[in-house]
Design a protein around this nucleic acid. Structure first.
Lengths: 133, 133
DNA sequence: CAGAATCCCCATTGATACTG
DNA sequence: CAGTATCAATGGGGATTCTG
């Protein structure tokens, strides 16, 4: 997690340049937990512990790391309240909400083809060897 | 590369179920090379070696592996011509082309926010330590 | 030409313990 | 509460070699 190239897609065949642009976007939400966090924070400010509960299965460490990355990319804003005990809130930026909206088309695609893909896999695994033997 | 759950998103908070659906889609194109291959094969049948040239930087091994995954998911069709020397052609399925169209929104998002993200990173790295420092 | 088989590295993730 | 610090496991991906 720390893809340095922010926009270096460079030259090359036209379609591979497009591929690179797509990857640019995917690399920011490609992490295992990014989407879950983004969605949880898109409705309003969320606290660290609340995220820990809502994003099921995430470890404290990964929550911290993913949070930092999202913040670094400008997808999340971190607001620290100087109180004791500490209170930190994370909020999705407009850019992040736009991102999520762009993902809607992809979500629909997944829903439409869920079964087709599942079937394709079963068929494939029958012809070639199945994962377990 | 062999995510077994084809559609097991299970129950849980509503937004985390959505997060899971998004990940379902992302997991199929999340690989480093999937998109490049998909795009290269979306215009028409492509041969193995041609892909090797067009998808810049890919190794023979990763090409084979990614090809197999895409085929397994029903995104690519593999056609073997019984000639000598062998000739194998890969073609994107309609489902794959739909997928690529769904990615257009994401591509636009990436283009719109390229600079903003780059700036956010620079700012972040200035306040906190930079990667190399 | 189109792979399959091997070996190896390191980035991502996880588990656990400690702290301002 | 909201992290940081360490250690360990896993597997994605690269490089190379062999083959029908």
């Amino acid at each position: 997690m720390r893809e340095e190239q922010a926009n270096r897609c460079g030259p090359g065949a036209a379609d591979q340049a497009r591929a690179c642009t797509v990857r640019e976007a995917l690399d920011r939400v490609g992490g295992k937990w990014s989407i879950g966090i983004l969605i949880a924070a898109s409705t309003g400010p969320v606290r660290f512990t609340e995220l820990e509960r809502r994003v099921e299965g995430i470890s404290r460490r990964m929550l911290t790391l993913t949070l930092r990355n999202l913040e670094r990319d400008g997808l999340l804003v971190r607001h620290v309240h100087p109180t004791v005990p500490p209170k930190v809130e994370y909020t999705a930026t407009p850019m992040a909400r736009e991102l999520y909206e762009s993902l809607v088309a992809l979500t629909r695609w997944a829903e439409r083809h869920r079964e087709a893909i599942s079937a394709a896999r079963t068929a494939y695994d029958r012809e070639h060897g199945t994962p377990a033997g």
